[in-house]
Design a protein around this nucleic acid. Sequence first.
RNA 1: UGCCCCAUGGUGUAAUGGUAACACUACAGUUUUUGGUACUGUCAUUUCAAGUUCGAGUCUUGAUGGGGUAACCA
Length: 552
Amino acid sequence: MSEEKSLNFIEEFIEADLKSGKHQQIHTRFPPEPNGYLHIGHASAIVLSFGLAEKYNGKCNLRFDDTNPVTEETEFVESIKNDVKWLGYTWDNELYTSDYFETLYGYAVKLIEKGLAYVDDSTAEEIAKQKGTPTTPGIANEYRERNIDDNLKLFQEMREGKYDDGEKVLRAKIDMAHTNMLMRDPLIYRIKHVAHHRTGDAWCIYPIYDFAHGQSDSIEKITHSLCTLEFLPHRELYDWFIEKLEIYPSRQIEFARRNMTYTVMSKRKLKQLVEEKHVNGWDDPRMPTISGLRRRGYTANSIKCFSERTGIAKRDNIVDIGLLDFFLRDDLNKIAQRRMAVLDPIKVVILNYEEGKTEKLIADNNPENEADGTRELNFSREIFIERADFMEEPPKKFFRLGPGLKTRLKHAYILECVDYKKDENGLVTEVHCNYFSDSKSGEDNSGIKVKGVIHWVNAADAVDAEIRLYDRLFKVENPMAEDGDFKDFINEDSLEIISNSKIEPALQSAADGQHFQFLRKGYFIKDKDSTNEKMVFNRAVGLRDSWAKKNK
RNA sequence: UGCCCCAUGGUGUAAUGGUAACACUACAGUUUUUGGUACUGUCAUUUCAAGUUCGAGUCUUGAUGGGGUAACCA
């Protein structure tokens, strides 16, 4: 079955826990905050948590970490669910941290009763100042010694809405001199008179991340709580709360977030790109969001393979975006049906082909998969080919058309170029050829050997289409590592729209989400902007092109 | 500056004390009616130093480098 593969450090922890009998079954969770769209980095986290649950026959929850009502919206909840589903995962439970608000409140009361939490009337500035710095210990203020009954009463009043935002907070009472700044009496509840996307006005106090996340894990009996490295310093607090609250001991394990070249991977930055209109929305095909990649024409499978192959570790990394493209091509080469589309058309007249005649040709839909069958193409005297497939003065080893050159039309005949026409600006407007009637694909008796094969569409029944080509969003590998604002490195030429392309008629029946390979041009998918009047196709990725590379 | 984490080819991961592996990229070539696909070959003495050991990428110590952390964000 599956070949022997070494375990990553998380799998080693899991197998040890399973072997020792600490757990009979593992339970993970994917806990996004619904304040934006998921990106490819999240995809790695999803593949990790859901994948581990699958591998070890465990469970995985989808939990929305919605403790900050000012940033969270239902729109994001829906998009996140949609993206996780699209990636091919089914969560065991759909949960919300906000479901636990009452329980969490109870936990806070318990902490107060144990003398481990207190209400602080200080301002944010005062609290920040009293925290000290990494090298100087913080100092306790008068509120730290408030008695339990007063704390209980005050916290109750906070909940009842007796105080304004910022007037009071609840803090855990730990150690103001701790070397870990997070342990210097961290805030655990703050007042926000803001409607929550799910609980509405039921609450005006909301728990802080540190007093919600670990507790939610514990409530759900999550065995292994996987998160990114920046939460590592939080683990001490995470464990402290579990211990003091005497609740189920979930275990937090941190891994390095996945970065990719030529893009940015933080929700805040992506949000900025959307809001400042550098892109057209969260699902702009240039965005590294899952919805953007989907619209661009990436497959869920390619994203999964990418995540699995890049693995998991604890060191900082930046993966070449080309690796994702490799997995996409690898996937699509097997499953995408082939079609012909001429992006930048130029007319070819076949002088010795009978005027008014149309013949049917047979084209295979995918040479990699015979089961995909064949389709018919019309062929006649006038066709379109790619402008780049004709050169007035072709260089050596140019296997396409040029004065006196021969090449084959895919699925059709060999052509020999005899002449061409130019307009007053020197632009070639028409190429004139003769064809060899005995060179038909599959029954070639001409004996002529040509090295090149080019794609084409029949002029009479070609369909007009708009084609959108994309390039990387940023001009530099790592915009975050450059001096200055990351937006200074945006690639202004990341979108190229070709509005006068000619595509073969079979493409008119393209289904939503159906992937195609346009022969010699790359992998494409119909965009949602398509109308009855005009079809629009996005190019997900080009084909490898050793000719273009050599001639750079 | 304090504390914490990390360090293996251009990139991402592997090697669990026994002589550096896999994938991508790049380059060269074979096949090909997609200049695609497929296939073959080439590209590292593991940041540095000292130590333990018959033997160290792996263990110890130190140095160097990179990152995180000091929000009423998550």
